[in-house]
Amino acid sequence: MIINHPLLGPRDSQEFTYLGDASLIERPDWQAADAVDQFYDYLYLRDNPAGLHRELWYHEQGDRSWLVVTRNTLTHDITSVELARDVAKAKGRST
């Protein structure tokens, strides 16, 4: 597959390491009353869509950016590639 890196352009997916669902960015608050339940959901309960999937890829043999790749799991069509850091910030993650 080819991943169109937002900074570097099209790159062979061989250069990347796959992690999984981009929802891993949304790590729960450890001080929430139901923190254990939230972490359980966060870690173990993921959708497994036949279709568009937002997922985390790491450009390990490249610039070490984590990317959020939107990929159709049926066709492998990739419709968007974003820097995970930007996605995390947009989701309100900061420090």
Binding site: T17, L19, L24, I25, R27, L56, Y58, E60, R64, S65, W66, L83, A84, R85, V87, A88, K89, R93, S94, T95
Partner: peptide, 19 residues
């Protein structure tokens, strides 16, 4: 070594991007 480095980059970029 490789896996830990990857994990640290994940935490740095995806969890706490403003640290």
């Amino acid at each position: 070594a490789v896996g830990v480095y990857r994990h640290l980059e994940f935490c740095r970029q995806c969890l706490w991007p403003d640290l």
